[in-house]
Write a protein that binds this DNA or RNA. Structure first.
Lengths: 122, 122
DNA sequence: GTATGTCAACGATTATTTTCGTACTTTTTT
DNA sequence: AAAAAAGTACGAAAATAATCGTTGACATAC
């Protein structure tokens, strides 16, 4: 599968949050100051690439992400691990920890995830 | 700071591994089938951007990464967290785990890192 | 039924990144 | 000293990504 570009990821994030939406919806929800036709074109391209599914049943087309958020996240994480962390997920975990504020609750949940993982790797 | 592009990251990885090197060194070490002048130009651009430091003392210039590997990794991780993981490092950790094979030894080391982190957050 | 507004299609433009060919300079070899 | 080898500089082409303007289709309101 091909990884989404920067602008595409922004659109995917909106679609994941809103669910199936029109171009207008996405454009309105976007933080960026980009024009309507820009978003339209981008979503059309994404549909061609297979990143989005388009329903033409209605007056204005309704787009929907074709890939699940979690799957895309995994792929982005895998890609970054490969490119910048010498293939070591461990290093990325360290990088993730050191890159952000992580609360005690987060730490607890991460430990829980580790336990889960140990019992049943994905 | 500005994040390195794909090709730039490849060069940085080589420089981090080899230490200060000439263009020839980097070109030889590279997996990619790209021409010598391509690498040269890229490293010149990177020097302009401030990503590399250039020493002109010798016959062939010697380049060196201006940013530490760990710092760049942190920034890449932070960037990815922001763009694709709703700002939650926890989610990236999960993504990292599910994206790769992680050994028992890795898990142990991750746990150790968590303990470290809890004692003295970065 | 004509005017107004909303939308998709399409092409074109701009910006950025990646790549390479050519020319010029400096060494090294013969 | 001429030829060959190894470098850098420079410009420009090719590829990719992002943006927008214009046009025509289709509704809805008047």
């Amino acid at each position: 599968m091909q990884l989404p570009t920067e602008a595409e990821l922004e659109i995917l994030n909106i679609l994941w949050a809103l669910g199936p939406s029109t171009v207008r919806d996405v454009h309105t929800a976007s933080e960026k100051e980009t024009g309507y036709t820009t978003v339209l074109k981008q979503m059309q391209v994404m549909a061609e690439k297979g990143l989005l599914k388009r329903s033409e049943r209605y007056r204005s087309h309704v787009y929907e992400a074709r890939i699940a958020k979690e799957q895309t996240q995994r792929q982005l994480a895998r890609n970054l691990v490969r490119r910048a962390f010498d293939g070591s997920a461990k290093n990325l975990v360290l990088g993730a920890l050191s890159s952000q504020k992580v609360t005690a609750a987060d730490l607890a949940e991460i430990r829980r995830m580790l336990d889960e993982y140990e019992k049943r790797p994905l």
